[in-house]
Nucleic acid binder design. Structure first.
Lengths: 202, 202
DNA sequence: CAAGAAGCTTGAACATCGTTCAATAAATAT
DNA sequence: ATATTTATTGAACGATGTTCAAGCTTCTTG
């Protein structure tokens, strides 16, 4: 009666969900195959019937995180005053908020490093490139004369700059910055960056 | 004849140097106590006579890396035209160059995460705070009316933004950016940020 | 429906880590 | 010279990702 294909897919889905929860709770380093197996009710070795290795598992969790991040940025993109500059500020703040609310899962996106020889699957690369889109579109409206290529580069730079502020701001290594202060810094610097880009474009 | 205290310190120094080389060659994940012991000619367990654990070893290597980074930024700070804005650009580019030339050691500074319970020793925190100084000073000269606190925050934001551009730019996960292109992006965005900060200050 | 084929699941076993520790060797003190 | 303190060793421990032969389940077919 039980269809093995369905059961397999169910288990697979459970595995990814359990891994997500485990990373969220204990960080990327706290992800253990034996704990996962116990969680989803199967043998340790069975994990490798559902997934090639932990790398793939982490990538699948990362894909889910990127999807949610994408949605959060989309929401920020449309909701609020239509000024392009303020739209970019909202996106940056949404990125900051998402990182703060999903700290360990967000960190896992960047902490994870594949072994040198095996390369990222395409579906994982695609996920990541989607993110720049949110910065690209307002930027293209702001600088209609620039080429697609120039805009792409600027979009990635802007995104990276905000990422850096969030990354070092949420790091506990140094003095931890209170979240409201970090948001204010980000908003200020994004506005300054846009101002500066407009001034240089003129 | 051989003084054990000296021998110990020599071994300790060798250990840190060997760890530095190993991280530079194989990345933080490639650091293995057994390989280190063989390298410096002692037993595996002897590593723990020289250092409390690998965390401390990584921190000591990090301290050396931060020192060299500090020197590179100092050099960039003084060499070149005296315009404050261009000084900040040079510092940003020096950071980028250092990261590119010391990729694995630079990555190790940020990849390494201590276990939650034990906290960073003071000497390690001090090392890191020194870095912001290079951004703080030109910034203070550029905005003499601002308070020490405001300047500190802005300095950290600017530093973090550049860090983000370098971090994502040197990441091979996505499309690898050619180094000259990355340098150009960084210079452009730093100039824009300063322009924007000046405009908003007026 | 029964029996063999095919695939799935299991958990023990392997290799590799960081780390510890009782035993050994060395250095120093008496 | 002998005793005491200290340093060093390398075997052993516990954890971890991964593999695999053996057993079990499910499906196919006569």
């Amino acid at each position: 009666m039980t269809k093995p294909l369905e059961r397999r897919e169910k288990l697979r889905s459970d595995l990814i969900l359990a891994a997500e929860k485990m990373i969220a709770d204990r960080g990327l380093a706290g992800l253990k195959t034996r704990d996962l197996a116990r969680e989803i009710g199967c043998a340790n070795g069975a994990v490798y019937n559902l997934v090639a290795d932990v790398d793939e598992l982490i990538l699948r969790v990362g894909s889910r995180t990127l999807l949610r991040l994408d949605q959060a940025l989309s929401t920020a993109e449309s909701a609020g005053e239509p000024s392009l500059q303020e739209t970019l500020v909202r996106i940056a703040l949404a990125y900051c908020d998402f990182a703060a609310e999903n700290l360990e899962l967000w960190r896992a996106l960047f902490e994870h490093r594949m072994e040198a020889d095996k390369l990222l699957p395409d579906w994982s690369i695609d996920d990541q490139l989607q993110l720049f889109r949110h910065v690209y579109e307002p930027l293209a409206a702001l600088f209609p004369k620039r080429s697609r290529e120039e805009l792409g580069i600027t979009a990635r730079s802007l995104f990276s700059a905000v990422h850096g502020m969030v990354a070092l701001g949420l790091e506990q290594k140094l003095v931890a910055v209170p979240l409201p202060a970090l948001r204010k810094e980000i908003a200020g610097l994004v506005r300054a960056m846009i101002d500066g880009l407009i001034a240089r474009a003129a």
